[in-house]
Simulated scan of single mutants.
Amino acid sequence: MKPVGIIRFSPTEGPGYLSKFLNEAGIRWQLIRIDAGEPLPTDCSAYAGIAMMGGPMSVNDPLPWIPPLLALIRDAVRKDIPLLGHCLGGQMMAKAMGGTITNNKCMEKGWHAVEVLPQPEARQWFGGIERFTTFQWHYQTFSIPPGAMQILRNDYCENQAFTHGPHIGFQCHIEMTVEMVREWCKGEDPVMARPVETPSVQSNMEIQQDLETRIASLNRLAASVYTRWIEGLKK
């Protein structure tokens, strides 16, 4: 099988649990480090699937690598090469597919529950789960692109995930590890570090309470989603 391409936008926002899952599943993967100046592929056909991680920048920023990435995503959609987006990655998918990226009504940071919508498409990805707690770290959000189906929501951010055939884009972070959470709490970007008094924003102390237990639960949820995603990988 061809490798899975994993696109990283920030050195602290790597593949996390996704890499562990792929290794255990015996699936090769290749890290494309945008943050280190590595070039994007111009053709997605070399990959069985493409995953995108998070990052502190906005999809709307005038960065030179964003238009080529949006073109790569659209190419993957045309060729049915499965896409998987986490936070910024999900926003990139939404933008490329015809959605818009705007500031969310509030910043969302920490451990928050999301609702699985009663849609057949949601059951394909989450089975009988109706609600779960996941990790959040964002101030912007995506609209659901044309032809896609919203499958997750919560009161702080209406659009938490969408699916379109073999593709799935998340606003939340299901890929987290203990090490990643601790690293993020130590070195926040200026926007997310602003003091905000709202239930949607947890303190770094709150975020790290019972961290191992929370991560273990999130990893189980992520493993279920990733198992569904790799079913569509190209040979």
Score class of each variant (00 low, 15 high):
residue 153 R to D: 09
residue 189 D to A: 10
residue 231 E to M: 07
residue 177 T to K: 04
residue 59 V to T: 14
residue 183 E to S: 14
residue 196 V to P: 11
residue 158 E to M: 12
residue 99 G to R: 04
residue 141 T to R: 12
residue 142 F to S: 01
residue 77 V to M: 09
residue 18 L to A: 09
residue 126 F to R: 00
residue 20 K to V: 11
residue 177 T to H: 08
residue 171 Q to F: 02
residue 208 Q to D: 09
residue 110 G to Q: 09
residue 143 S to L: 04
residue 128 G to T: 11
residue 4 V to S: 09
residue 29 W to E: 12
residue 132 F to N: 06
residue 31 L to W: 04
residue 118 P to R: 00
residue 51 A to V: 07
residue 157 C to P: 08
residue 125 W to V: 01
residue 199 P to V: 06
residue 129 I to M: 14
residue 49 G to P: 09
residue 62 P to A: 01
residue 17 Y to R: 04
residue 221 L to T: 15
residue 213 T to C: 09
residue 203 S to E: 13
residue 150 Q to I: 01
residue 193 A to V: 05
residue 129 I to R: 13
residue 235 K to I: 03
residue 177 T to M: 08
residue 118 P to K: 01
residue 140 Q to A: 11
residue 178 V to R: 12
residue 235 K to A: 13
residue 41 P to G: 03
residue 200 S to P: 11
residue 128 G to C: 06
residue 128 G to Q: 14
residue 7 I to R: 07
residue 178 V to P: 10
residue 90 G to Y: 09
residue 204 N to H: 11
residue 81 I to F: 07
residue 102 T to W: 08
residue 76 A to G: 05
residue 104 N to G: 12
residue 205 M to Y: 06
residue 196 V to Q: 15
residue 22 L to N: 06
residue 178 V to N: 15
residue 77 V to N: 05
residue 63 L to D: 13
residue 85 G to R: 02
residue 233 L to N: 02
residue 46 A to T: 08
residue 15 P to E: 15
residue 204 N to P: 02
residue 53 M to Y: 09
residue 107 M to C: 05
residue 222 A to Y: 05
residue 50 I to Y: 08
residue 61 D to E: 15
residue 36 A to M: 12
residue 206 E to L: 05
residue 120 P to R: 00
residue 152 L to M: 04
residue 189 D to S: 13
residue 71 A to L: 11
residue 88 L to E: 12
residue 59 V to A: 12
residue 208 Q to A: 01
residue 77 V to G: 00
residue 28 R to C: 09
residue 5 G to F: 06
residue 221 L to R: 03
residue 230 I to G: 01
residue 17 Y to T: 02
residue 28 R to G: 14
residue 176 M to C: 12
residue 160 Q to T: 05
